[in-house]
Design a protein around this nucleic acid. Sequence first.
DNA 1: TTAGGTGCAAACGTTTTGCAACTTG
DNA 2: CAAGTTGCAAAACGTTTGCACCTAA
Lengths: 152, 152
Amino acid sequence: MRATAEHDVEQLRARLNDYMAKHGLRSTEQRRLVTEIFFATEEHLSIEDLLDRVRIEEPKIGYATVYRTLKLLKDCGLAFERHFGDGVSRYEVAWANEHHDHLICVECEKIVEFEDGDIEELQHGVAARLGFTLVRHKLELYGMCADCRAKQ
Amino acid sequence: MRATAEHDVEQLRARLNDYMAKHGLRSTEQRRLVTEIFFATEEHLSIEDLLDRVRIEEPKIGYATVYRTLKLLKDCGLAFERHFGDGVSRYEVAWANEHHDHLICVECEKIVEFEDGDIEELQHGVAARLGFTLVRHKLELYGMCADCRAKQ
DNA sequence: TTAGGTGCAAACGTTTTGCAACTTG
DNA sequence: CAAGTTGCAAAACGTTTGCACCTAA
């Protein structure tokens, strides 16, 4: 759907450094490691998932550090937190100028991203009709993917 | 938006009794009390909310009973569990033939329900285009309601 | 040097469960 | 009476925090 090559990691680093400088925060080895691994990931990671990957390179890193780093990324708008109903928070990189929703397979839990301008337009219409100014939305479609349907 | 009068509580009771009979479950006083109070409610209740109401009539009822009763209602499709991001699960009655999504005020947390057939149609289109058979969806719109906008 | 960061373990808030006593059918 | 249910309290679960030690600037 989207190619990794399009993504401008450099821009994320710049935004992060900006934010840290502005808030008197420091660039530590752990923080760099966690953010780089996170930025290099296409999937929707839980804290544990990310911790596992980080520990391959630096086994001493603790859960709390990953947690706090993701909080930082959330705070400066570089990560989105998602909840797909299984009790754990998952995170994905907030690439600039990109917005998408999720289609989740109820069988194999595969997550596909999509974007649909028509739906978004209708959402604004609904909100306006009820007197709301829309700020954001969450749309998740749950269904069975082609692979799982074939297997049944 | 919808009048209580339209809702057929009798049908819910019947479906519940059916389910319980089919699964060898029993109709206890606590279960009846919890379900009746739940069925009579328009709001999106947390377990605690519901427990508070139930305890007005029967102070001895425990959290676990309400929890387990809601699980039962969820299992037989009479209750939906919702997560609006504040860490607690909220429940609402799954009235037959009714489906709606939510519009939530980011300021006062008011929740308005809506239905939009056009959006749903587009959702099916998106899913089909990506090879999925749509089972259900979750759409939440977050914005500022007219009242809160006026106060600012 | 000092404000900020780390890792650990303990605290937290919500959800879930084991169990002995009690009800329902 | 057998099987299901209750209420309690404890366990489990993911998340968050206090603190003593460490490190970037």
